[in-house]
Each structure stands twice: as C-alpha cells, then as structure tokens.
Design a protein around this nucleic acid. Structure first.
Lengths: 331, 331
DNA sequence: CTAGGCAATGTTTACGTAAACATCCACTGG
DNA sequence: CCAGTGGATGTTTACGTAAACATTGCCTAG
C-alpha cells in the first residue's frame, strides 16, 4: 500500500480511501491511485483488513457430508447470495454426524475466520453443542426443526406434505400410504405428521407407516412390501430417491404406475422428470432457503438482535407429472 | 491474549507459545496458561495470525454451480482433506460459466483470504483468465483437460470409457453406440475419443455419435432416436443422468434393457443402482480426486516449485449391474 | 479584503499476533 | 568457587490496514 501511495504521490490513507470506494477523493487523484495499483499489481491484504475492521466478511457453513441434493443446493444458494453481499463462504465439513464431531466443528469455529455461521443440519445434534459456540457469532439453521433457541429457515415441510396427500385424495384415492424418512430426522417426522394429519382431517384412516432411510435402496425394499398390499393405490414417498426405488420395486412386481398405484415424491431432484414414469413431486425452493439464511444471519449481525426462535418457512410447489392418476374404480 | 497472559502471570509471548504448541514451556506454565485461556474464553484471532504469519491456512475452490454430482463429491473430498491438513476451504462460486465471470472470480481472488486455489472447471474457460491470477497463488485444476500450464488431477476418463466399451464388446456386441456429452466439454470429448479408439482398435466400425448435454432430458431425446435403430444393441452413455433418460425412452418404445439393448453409464451416482434396470456404470473415485487436489496444491506451496503441466489420473472401476447382457443372437 | 467553512489530503495510531532478540537463572565442569 | 551453558521466559517490533484526528488550501459571504 505504501508503494502504491508513493508511486501515486499521495498518502497511504488516500490509497485506502480509493481502495474502499470512500468519498472525498478527487477524480484525478482516484485515477492516479488506480493506475498505480494496477502498475504494481496491488491487492489489499485481507488479513490486515480483517484485523483492522474486526470482521472477516466471511460466513461459515457447517454441514455434514453434502449427501443430500437439498443441502447442496442450499449451500450453493448460500454461496451465491453471500457473494452478492460481499461475503465469502467457508466450508466446515463434519465427517460423521455424531455429537462429538459437531462439537468439534463448533469449537474449531472459534479460531476460524468467520463472522457468523449457517448450520445445515438436523437440530437435535446441535442441542448439546450450543455451549461451545463462541460469543458474538450469530447462527442460522437451515433444514431443521424449529428450536426456540435458533433462528431457523426451512422449507415448509408440512405444507408440501399436505399438498402431496391432498393431490392424491383429490384424484379420488381413498387413502394414501406413506414411505417415511428415518426416525431421527425432523424433516421426515414433520412430513409424516402432516401426512397423517391431512388424512385424519379428511376423515380417512391412515394406513400403517412404512419407513425408509432416504436411500433409493430403502425405497426399493419398501416397494416390495407395498406391492403386496392390494388396498394400496397411492403412495407419498418422503423424498424422490426413495420414490425411485419404489418405482423399481412396483415395476418388478408388475404393479403399474400410475395405473395400479400413484406415487408422489418430495424434493423435485432434476432426475425425477426422467423417472419411469416421470415423478409427480413436491418442489422445494432451496435457492430461496439459502438466500434467506444469508439475509437472516446478516441482519442478525447488524442489529445485534437476539431474537431467538424465529422460524421462516419457504413454500413448496406441487409438480404434476405422469406418476399420479385417478384410481381405477373396479370395486 | 494480554488478558490471558496477565491472568496466568506470564508474558503474552508465552501464551503465544502455548497456543501454538511450541516447545520450551514448562508443563506447569503450560497448564496455567491453558487454564487462563479456558477461564477467559480466549480464542486466537485468526486475522492477526494470518497477518503475522503471512498465510491464511485457507484454500479457495472455484467452481461454477455445483451442478454435477462429480463436482460436489470432489468439493466434499477437498473440504475434508483440507481440514485434515489444518486448512479451511473457501468457496468461490461462479454463477455463469462465461469468460467474464471466471475472470471476475480470479480477480476477486486476489483480495480473498486464500493461500492457494483449486479450480473445478473445464480448463478452456481458464486460458484467457490466467493473466489475472495473483502471483504466488498456486493452482490445481480438477475435472479438466490437461493444459501444459496447470497441474491437473482428474478421473481417468479415457480408461473408464475404454472399460465401458470393452465390457460391451466382451459380452458379444458387434459394436457400441455412444451418447456423448456436450461438445464444449473436454471430459465428454475424451470419453468420446476413447470410445471411438477402442472400437477402431477392436476392428469395429463406430456408429454415428449421438450428442446430449449431460441432462436426463437430453438422454431421453437421444433414446427416442436410438430406439428406432434396429442395429443398435449396446449404448455407452457419457453419464448416468443421460442413461436414465435413455432407459425411459427405450422403455416407452418397447425396447427391453438389457434384452434388446444393453446400456452402460458413467459416474455411478447413488441412484444408478435403483434405475430400471439397475445401471452398469463406470465408478469414479471423486474422494481420491479431491484428496490429490489438496495434496498437490499443498506440496506446490511448500516447495514453491513451478512444475507446470503435471497430470494425475485417478483410475475408474466398472460396476456391473443389470443393464448389460449378451446380445440375442437371432440373426 | 478577510474570516469562516468545507472539501481534499496527510499523519498518527492501534488492531492481535509471533518472530527475533534479550534476559534471567539454575546447573555443570574445571 | 566461578565461568560457561542452555533452557525458560520476557521485551521489542513489524505485519498491512483504516479510524480518528490534523492539516492544507480554496471558495464564499459579509
């Protein structure tokens, strides 16, 4: 910076002003400084900047293995949105979703060059970890159940599940079976609750719940079971991958989709339009989730507010494709 | 730090030594300092550290939209591997893969708290961007063609494609059709070249190449075409998504897989085991690619070497599933 | 014609850390 | 008994920046 100042014939402070786009610099001077910067290949040192300003202009994102499409898309949206606000994004991967690992990530956080944190993770892993959160670091949680202690941004899981079930009921199905996600997941839990609630509201009896683990393989196993249920004409799968496995099992067992059984998924992964048949599913707006996470955490930083427990829900959208139809009325 | 020093009754330098695990501190003193740190909730300020040390312990990863599964898995491996070496990972998303955007990302890089960069991107976008690379920042490129100017780590595209084609020939097919990726992609190009080369080597005539754009939708369109080719008994799709679309089209047209047509994909995405039928595909070891990227860039930093043009290939593995079989000999 | 004001620019300082150097002290060997 | 040695700890300083304050000089109103 000093070199630039000397070459431009000004003080280093003026260079700083130009570099930060501050007012109070003549157009001439500014041009001269810029020229000097270019000539010397000057780049501001972000460490010194951060030291001086007391902030890093960086957001940390804690997530374990970018396994699910949703998390990835959310991460991507966070990165893009953060960039728009002049923030960089640092990734804090947690290899195994155990309490210890999460605690470890949180304590490493303190030494990390990060102003705030966005957690993409089921919240129950967070509870015991709170203690080690460095003070002054704001947190927003995505993809999680509302805790009273965190600001949460999430897809409207319940609304999406309700739409899925209603769609099937509207088509004329007597009831809807549910292929749920793993027990430990709040997202799975909320989708299942909404499924049950919607059926009950409509005066239908919820059939026994079938459980998977989000994987296509588990959907396949569930499908083999469901294929043998003669009563089953409509299934709401808690995600698209399980729906994929389900479709394969039904096909193998000679059950037609949607002729014999209608299937609805959840997520709208890009491939779902090319399933056999193309899958009716609930579209999630991950880009919006990511955007809201960033804005939430930034606004928390600014006002230094401590409003815990705010939950923002991002609406979903039903995407109708070929895997759902009215039941055959043969009885 | 000064507070900790005072509480522990030592100098700040001793605190620094403890904080960095340096020798020359009595066990007693160390314990006292650690206690003081805990009591005051001391966390080293990474900005000051970086300023003093002249390095950030951070790697930048440039990638545009985490669209493909491969890039995501690579990114994840990079993050994990970097963490093991005590490095953090900062994400530099490029919204649109245009020259301008890439150049922009590279120039922003200079102001970013990053010691080295890993680029996950087709290299042709890099060529014109080189100029703005800040000096002293090492680069490793993943998922790209070898340039003489960069260190490249990539999956052995050619080897994988060769294995795919050979597998089909070994099963007894006369020749193999190829559903290629977009023209602009070097990965697609190399897979196509290896496909053609392997056929020629084996004395077969390569059928006309069919082109897609990586998406399942494009695979579907290609599949409609191929379903009408009576000669076609085996297809090698350049990725699993296109294979998925292909399977749907073939199914719709009443062509059995693998009865009438065998299909091989590329990538081994998790869903491919649940396709209809389960897809034979080429497994890529993205974790290894990520690991090698990190180690490559770190070793470049250490030796300050300037060995350009090194290319490391990570081997692939053929995963046999139900979508491939011997052709029916009815002629 | 001059005091006052304001815009443009310069000077000083502190941010938190770790390297380099300085000091202290206990112990060893002659 | 003392010089020498080496380990433990303390002191000084610089890293590059931007905030706070200081200075300069020009313009305008009275």
């Amino acid at each position: 910076m000093a070199d630039v100042a000397q070459l431009a014939g000004v003080s280093s402070q003026t260079v700083s002003r130009v570099s930060n786009g501050f007012p109070g610099v003549t157009e001439d001077t500014r041009a001269q400084v810029l020229a000097a910067m270019r000539e010397l290949g000057y780049r501001p040192n972000s460490a010194a900047r951060a030291l001086r300003r007391g902030e890093f202009r960086t957001l940390g994102v804690i997530t374990f293995s970018l396994s699910t499409m949703g998390n990835i898309r959310t991460l991507e949206a966070i990165a893009t949105s953060a960039a728009e606000h002049g923030y960089a994004v640092t990734l804090l991967p947690v290899a195994v979703p155990t309490q210890d690992e999460v605690n470890g990530a949180f304590s490493r956080l303190g030494e990390l060059a990060v102003d705030a944190v966005i957690v993409i993770m089921e919240i129950h892993l967070l509870d015991a970890a709170t203690v080690s959160l460095p003070p002054g670091v704001q947190v927003v949680v995505a993809d999680s159940d509302a805790g009273d202690r965190y600001t949460v941004v999430d897809t409207d899981q319940a609304g999406g599940a309700r739409d899925a079930v209603r769609h099937l009921l509207d088509l004329g199905h007597d009831t809807v079976w549910h292929l749920a996600g793993p027990e430990g997941s709040f997202a799975a839990q909320r989708r299942a609750n909404a499924w049950r609630g919607t059926l009950t509201e409509a005066g239908r009896t919820p059939p026994p719940l079938v459980r998977g683990d989000w994987s296509a393989e588990s959907g396949y196993r569930a499908g083999l079971l469901l294929a043998d249920e003669p009563e089953c004409t409509a299934v709401f799968a808690a995600n698209d991958q399980m729906a994929l496995g389900l479709l394969r099992a039904l096909h193998e067992r000679g059950r037609r989709v949607p002729g014999d059984i209608s299937v609805v998924g959840f997520d709208d992964i890009p491939e779902s339009a090319s399933f056999l048949p193309p899958l009716t599913t609930i579209h999630q707006d991950f880009a919006e989730v990511g955007r809201l996470c960033v804005e939430g955490v930034l606004s928390k930083m600014r006002r230094d507010g401590v409003e815990h427990g705010t939950t923002t829900l991002v609406p979903t959208r039903l995407v109708r494709r070929a895997s759902t139809a009215a039941p055959r009325r043969e009885r």
